[in-house]
Computed example of a mutant assay.
Amino acid sequence: MSPEIAQSPLRTAGLLVARLIFAAVFLMAVSFKFMGMADTAGYIAAAGFPFPLFLAWCAAILEVLLVVAFLTGAFFSQAALVAAVYVLFLGFAFHGPGRWAANQNEFGFFVDHFTFLAGLLFAAVHGPGKVLSLNLGWPGRA
């Protein structure tokens, strides 16, 4: 990447907006969990997972940590990779091929997870940027 692009205000703004979008998506998800943990547990149970309330709380805690990482830039690349694995898991577990025959909308939800996955992988590679970022994590990431 050329120095002009690497230092540009457009790149800085893009990174900040992307971080805010990632944080907002996970903040919405965790908010729904906190507003209806039993409903989330029911959804998890319906997908066939054991210990649904425990898993709902684990998901909520993970999502809170992701929000903090995306907002602060701390451990950003690692958080983006964890989020990517989480989103991939959610896509297959809750919207995978076994659900498409009963509801074709599930295929759309499944594909949406891959779009989000691509953004998270891109973010993991490029890091949080230098503005409004704690830049904790792997050495050399900006």
Rank of each mutant, 00 (worst) to 15 (best):
L120R: 01
G127P: 02
F94Q: 06
L121K: 02
P128V: 02
G98M: 13
A124S: 04
G108F: 10
F116M: 12
A124M: 05
E106S: 15
G91M: 12
R99G: 08
V82Y: 14
V85Y: 11
A84S: 15
F116I: 14
N105P: 09
A93K: 07
A84V: 11
P128G: 02
D112E: 14
F110L: 11
L121F: 07
F107I: 15
N103L: 14
H126S: 03
G98C: 05
N105S: 15
L117G: 13
L121A: 04
A84L: 11
L117M: 12
T115Y: 10
A102Y: 08
F92H: 10
F109A: 15
F109E: 14
Y86F: 15
V87C: 09
V125L: 13
G127Y: 05
F92T: 03
G129A: 06
G96L: 05
L81P: 01
V82I: 15
H113M: 01
L81D: 03
F109H: 08
K130Y: 01
F109W: 01
L121T: 06
G119R: 07
V82Q: 05
L120I: 01
A101E: 09
A101W: 00
V87L: 12
V85E: 10
P128M: 04
L81F: 13
P97L: 07
H113G: 04
V125D: 04
H113L: 04
A118P: 00
F110Q: 07
G119F: 00
K130F: 07
F94R: 09
F122R: 00
G108Q: 10
L117V: 05
F114P: 12
T115L: 12
Y86V: 02
F109C: 05
F89Q: 06
N103M: 14
Y86A: 10
D112I: 06
K130I: 04
H126G: 02
F114R: 02
A101D: 11
G96K: 02
F107D: 13
G119A: 05
G129Y: 00
A93D: 09
G129C: 06
L81S: 08
P128I: 00
V82H: 09
H113V: 00
A83H: 06
F94P: 08
H95F: 14
A124R: 01
L90D: 03
F92V: 13
G98S: 09
F122I: 09
G127F: 01
L88H: 02
R99M: 12
L81Q: 05
V111R: 11
Q104D: 08
E106M: 07
F94G: 13
F122C: 05
R99E: 14
K130A: 14
T115P: 06
L120G: 07
